[in-house]
């Protein structure tokens, strides 16, 4: 098995804890992310994908649980220096390229922000050269450095977001719906770019999306979230060919594909959480049904799933 880069253990993120408006945005989830892989995270809006990403990268303090990066718990108390190192290793790309880039800043300064914070360049000449190099890496060029973010199209802005994340030579990138706001053909450009960069630099991705067609294409493994819980985790192919949790089945059956014949016969399944009929005291947990294919289920459901799978 590949080497673990991150271990997420019993992670919880409750907003407004103890108050009537408490939201269990992330409710006790555990999974690993392997070095060099892309782990896709899907589920409907509000199920806790962004909160998971933001808690991992420490934009939020976890309510409970651990995020272990290369053997060290990210959420432990740490010196300023250690924190800085983590911040450099983990970077985030956001969905909305418009909102996440300051329109009144020059591209040069947007991209160099991380370089400045981490003291990665010695002088302004080196700074400019590094920015130009980054622009070229993401398919833009030297001339773009002196322009403002608002002068760029959606796809170009997403490239700027990627260049900014790459500036500090991270190992791990959380991409939160990086292509959701883009046109189909531009989505393909950005996804290709992310894949190329991964191969070149050995990057590890957590790729958050609600659009499921691209996720399958880019991910090695995919996790499915439902109301703060991880309900299924499996290799991408396996998840699509053999979804086991009824929620995953429902989600996949709802995706329209660019194939009219398929669309004429597609039958949508709906998911009713009550259909599990869980009894009091029954332990519901992630269980490995087939190698690498985990399902959130009861002991009884587990037995049934295993019987079907063998």
């Amino acid at each position: 098995m590949a080497e673990k880069l991150l271990e997420i253990k019993n992670l919880k993120q409750y907003f407004n804890q103890g108050k009537p408006n408490e939201v269990r945005a992330v409710d006790d989830i555990s999974f690993d992310i392997y070095k060099g892989e892309t782990l896709g995270l899907v589920g409907e809006s509000g199920c806790g994908k962004s909160t998971t990403g933001r808690t991992i990268i420490r934009l939020y303090d976890a309510t409970d649980g651990q995020v272990i990066y290369d053997g060290i718990n990210v959420h432990d108390k740490k010196s300023k220096n250690d924190l800085k190192t983590f911040n450099r290793k983990m970077q985030m790309i956001f969905q909305d390229p418009y909102a996440s880039l300051n329109p009144r800043m020059k591209v040069l300064d947007i991209i160099a922000e991380g370089l400045d914070i981490h003291g990665l360049v010695k002088n302004s000449k080196e700074r400019k050269e590094r920015v130009v190099e980054l622009l070229e890496t993401v398919g833009l060029n030297r001339e773009h450095a002196d322009r403002y973010a608002h002068e760029f199209s959606g796809g170009q802005r997403q490239r700027l977001g990627i260049a900014r994340a790459l500036a500090v030579n991270p190992e791990f990138i959380i991409a939160d719906e990086p292509i959701s706001a883009l046109d189909v053909s531009i989505q393909a450009q950005v996804v290709n770019l992310l894949k190329e960069l991964q191969e070149e630099k050995g990057l590890t991705y957590l790729f958050i999306a609600h659009d499921l067609s691209m996720v399958k294409y880019i991910s090695d493994r995919i996790g499915v979230m439902y109301f703060g819980k991880l309900v299924e985790l499996a290799p991408a192919e396996d998840l699509y060919n053999n979804p086991m949790h009824p929620y995953t089945q429902s989600l996949l059956s709802a995706i329209p594909l660019p194939d009219p014949n398929y669309e004429r016969t597609r039958v949508r399944k709906s998911y009713d959480p009550a259909s599990h009929n869980y009894q009091d005291g029954e332990e519901i947990a992630m269980r490995e049904v087939t190698p690498g294919h985990f399902v959130y289920c009861s002991e009884k459901e587990f037995a049934t799933l295993q019987a079907i799978s063998n």
């Binding site: 189909v184 329209p256 669309e263």
Partner: peptide, 9 residues
Amino acid sequence: THDLGVVAN
């Protein structure tokens, strides 16, 4: 729409 899946549907 720009979603070709939706179009096919």
